[in-house]
Simulated scan of single mutants.
Amino acid sequence: MAALGESIGIDERTVLVLGQELDVGRGQPDVGNALVHRAGETLVLVDTGVTEAFRAALREAADRVGPWSRVLVLTTHGHPDHVGNNDLADELAEEYGVPAEHCVPAPDLDQMRDPDAYWVRAFERVEGMAPLPDPAVAGPALVSLFRPYRPFAAVTRTYEERPPERIRIGSSRFTGWTFADGAVRVLRTHGHCAGHVIVHLRDCGVLHLSDEGNGACGAMADADQLKIQTALGAVARLFEEGEAALLTDGHTFALRRGAEAAVPFLDGLLDQAAALQSAVLGVLGVTGGSGGSGGSGPVVPGEFTARFAQAFAATGGGGANPNALFLAMMAVNQLRELGLRPESAAPGAPWSRPPLQLGD
């Protein structure tokens, strides 16, 4: 198990700083991995994690990849484990007397401003599906682990304030933004949550997937399963064509070098996603009574979640911070993906597929 803040040198100007897993019982926040890279004279920080210890590790890595004369902090998405030290952009600018820039995804601004509300909503969706205290208490309690929480700097702007670019890498086409004379490419994916981006470092060939690879099924209320899978397929193509050489992500404490390591990992996630949805159809045939593979009868959420957990384990599913709560969040997303909806707003209400409204 990696220690918080441990660094893996990729080359003389690129370092992956490792985070840690969530342990609510010990009051330990999860911390997303961060990349520290020098592109010419620009220091690039891709995510800043959280905790003072991780902040110190980022500063050590910044010294290690120097010298640099400007600072660029890029946020991949707005979850607390990736943004807590974002004010480091201001600190480095002031201390070294250099210009600094910090960019965040506009769709994630609301959750960054009010993470309590974001997580309360996430937990409200699974009432009756997993053991959980009052979401109004559980949401703020989780967020309280992430300290200090400084998601904005004086220099913070949204990516979307810059003109969008069409970015071609090999045969793949993306939309996003480039920095440092094209050496840093921010690619819009929007799968793991509403504003998610991934980052390609042209000169060293690193592709930072951040949390798009967190498992076979997105857990958050603003996750989009199709976008996750599309991003995974697009990244696999970059490796197959030699346009990317090394895969990093937000919560796997390892490097995947070359297509021979990266592509099987990405294909494995896609295979798990397909297998999981197939398994869910079978589960609905059981929990939905006479519904067969489509499950037309009501689904009891608690029963479905238990069976979903078994199906998830059978597919080899993993992802960041696997636990009963996140499994329930994924189960909700799978039900919605298949067109089912709760029959009432009451916690634990049955789910079913609304009847089709056929014309005369």
Rank of each mutant, 00 (worst) to 15 (best):
S7A: 15
I10T: 13
T14N: 13
V15N: 08
G19L: 00
E21H: 09
R26H: 05
R26C: 03
G27Q: 09
Q28Y: 09
G32I: 00
L35W: 09
L35H: 12
H37Q: 08
H37C: 07
H37T: 03
R38C: 05
T51M: 03
R55K: 14
A56D: 14
A57V: 00
L58F: 03
L58C: 06
E60L: 11
A62I: 08
V65N: 11
V71C: 11
V71N: 06
G78F: 04
V83I: 12
N85W: 00
D90Q: 03
Y96P: 07
P107N: 00
Q111P: 10
M112S: 10
M112N: 08
D116L: 11
D116Y: 10
A117L: 05
R121E: 15
L132W: 09
D134V: 03
A136N: 12
A136W: 10
S144K: 08
R147C: 10
T156A: 01
T158N: 01
E161D: 01
E161S: 00
R166Q: 10
S172E: 07
T175R: 14
T178E: 06
F179C: 06
F179D: 04
A180E: 07
D181S: 06
G182Y: 02
H192Y: 14
H192G: 12
V199I: 10
H200G: 11
H200S: 14
R202V: 10
C204G: 05
H208R: 12
H208I: 13
L209G: 07
G215S: 02
A216Y: 00
C217R: 04
A223K: 06
A223G: 12
Q225P: 01
K227Q: 08
K227M: 06
I228C: 05
T230S: 13
T230M: 09
A231K: 04
G233C: 07
A236K: 01
L238N: 03
L238I: 03
E240Y: 05
E241Y: 07
L247E: 04
H251C: 11
L255F: 09
L255K: 11
R256Y: 01
G258Y: 01
E260V: 04
A262I: 01
V263S: 02
P264H: 01
F265S: 03
A274R: 14
L276C: 02
S278T: 15
S278W: 11
L281K: 13
L281Y: 11
G282M: 14
G282V: 08
V286I: 07
V286S: 09
S293V: 11
G294Y: 12
G295A: 00
G295V: 02
P298V: 02
V300I: 07
V300L: 13
G302L: 15
F304H: 06
T305V: 15
F308Q: 06
F308P: 05
T315G: 09
T315A: 10
G317N: 02
G319D: 00
N321V: 11
N321I: 09
M329V: 08
M329K: 13
M329P: 12
M330T: 05
A331G: 11
V332W: 10
N333Y: 10
Q334E: 12
R336M: 14
S344M: 04
P347S: 09
G348E: 04
P350L: 04
L356H: 06
L356D: 07
Q357Y: 09
L358A: 13
G359N: 15
